[in-house]
Computed example of a mutant assay.
Amino acid sequence: MKKPLIFLVLLFSCTIIAQNDPKVAFQKTRYELAVSCYKKADFVKALDLFSIASKIKPENELGKESVKKVDCLKTMLRKSIMDKVIGTWKMNGDKPLWAVNAASNTNYKTIEELVEINQKQILFYELDTKTKAKKLIKSEDLAYYNKDQSDALFSAIILSDGTIWNCSLNEGADILHVINIAKQTENGVEKIKADNLERFYSKVK
């Protein structure tokens, strides 16, 4: 009963304040919509809405509660995606697999690029398709990009060269799409808004 009671007190308090503050009114609607999405198990949408609510008035109680929800949902969604991406992936290029298949010719690749993902690392390999010899090219610690506690990015990772990649899976969880969204430099984080590098991977095992 304690959590529902806190929620009701928060909403009641915000209703009174919102009458004189349009920002709080908007924050309240975002928060309520986020709660609704959460109850429907639409966790990605709920995360986005809680993130918005937390940034409108971060100093008030609804803002602070929203940040807690963001943190909780990020942890949950990261665990969910991690359970699905652990394994070996073959790099298909910068286009979806269906496009690669449609445009492919009979050329046979002698070297394939593989990525192995575990709980702590990302390992990059080259595979000789004739000899099946596998050569480790580089390894990266698996580190989530989490500069802003209240942002909605839950599947972005940062590599040792400072590049930040957002990762997503298709419904079947057998195609991994990564896109370079930013780079961290000495001057801060530079967002990439055009001509982003992309890579598509298909799951091997």
Rank of each mutant, 00 (worst) to 15 (best):
I86H: 02
V85W: 08
P4F: 05
T15D: 15
F26R: 13
Q121P: 08
W165G: 01
L123C: 13
G162D: 07
F124C: 11
I192E: 05
N105S: 14
F12Q: 14
T15N: 15
L127E: 05
C37I: 05
K74S: 02
E32H: 06
L142A: 01
I157Q: 11
L114A: 05
F154S: 03
A152G: 12
P4L: 11
N118D: 13
A133Q: 12
I158E: 08
D94Y: 04
T29K: 14
V44T: 09
N105H: 12
A53P: 00
T110E: 15
S160N: 13
W165N: 01
E65H: 07
D148K: 14
D195G: 04
E112Q: 11
D128A: 02
Y144C: 05
D21K: 00
I192C: 04
Y108W: 12
N187T: 06
P96R: 02
N20M: 11
G93L: 03
T163C: 08
K3H: 10
A133C: 14
F200G: 00
E198G: 01
T88I: 07
M1P: 13
N196M: 05
T75D: 15
F12C: 14
I117R: 02
N146Q: 10
I81N: 04
Q19G: 14
L169W: 00
F124L: 12
A182V: 05
S54G: 01
R199S: 13
N92T: 07
V85H: 06
C167F: 05
Y144W: 10
K3V: 14
Y125F: 13
E140Q: 11
N180M: 12
V24G: 10
K57R: 07
E61W: 09
Q121H: 13
I111V: 12
R199G: 13
A143V: 12
D21Q: 01
L97H: 10
F12V: 12
F50L: 03
K68A: 12
M76V: 10
E59W: 08
T131R: 01
A173Y: 08
N187E: 15
Y201D: 05
S104V: 01
I81R: 06
F124K: 10
T163I: 03
K40Q: 11
Q121T: 15
L49K: 03
A46H: 05
K57C: 08
I179M: 07
L5R: 12
I111T: 10
K2S: 12
D151W: 06
V189Y: 04
L114R: 09
K135M: 14
F12A: 15
S168R: 07
E198Y: 01
N101S: 06
V44L: 09
Q119G: 11
Y38C: 08
L49W: 01
